[in-house]
């Protein structure tokens, strides 16, 4: 019985990582399974946001507060992951903008944003 309780608490101690894994795998699935390129990019940003969650939850300390120094508090969460993820969010939006610009160009050249229709046209051209 105590083994079971220990296993359950070991499971619950990492619940942030299970949420991260779920989000990451659903993003990966969308990127592979969907033929529509806008949906692929939305899946990619889902994947990226799971990485944000992984970093921010790793820096969290129980009973801590936001890392803004105030005499009323002594325990703060780790500020470094916050800085790294601030950079990652901005780089993520830059990649999203570039991907969407490529989608617009592909739509002008092929008249479609569906992956299989584009492959079809490439095969016909050969």
């Amino acid at each position: 019985m105590s083994d079971l309780v220990a296993a359950a608490s070991g499971f619950l101690d990492h619940y942030n990582q299970y949420i991260t894994i779920f989000l990451m795998v659903s993003g990966l699935y969308i990127v592979i399974a969907r033929g529509n390129m806008v949906k692929k990019l939305v899946g990619l940003s889902l994947f990226q946001s799971s990485v944000y969650l992984l970093y921010i939850s790793a820096g969290k300390v129980h009973g801590g507060t936001a890392p803004i120094i105030d005499p009323g508090f002594t325990v703060y969460s780790h500020p470094l992951p916050h800085v790294l993820i601030l950079t990652a969010i901005v780089v993520g939006i830059a990649t999203l903008a570039l991907g969407l610009a490529l989608v617009v160009r592909i739509n002008e050249a092929y008249g479609s944003i569906e992956e299989d229709e584009i492959f079809e046209r490439d095969r016909d051209d050969k």
């Binding site: 936001a66 601030l86 969010i89």
Partner: peptide, 14 residues
């Protein structure tokens, strides 16, 4: 999760 700066950026940019 104690990251107000990241939350602001994610809400504005994301």
């Amino acid at each position: 999760l104690d990251a107000p700066d990241v939350a602001l950026t994610e809400a504005a940019v994301g």
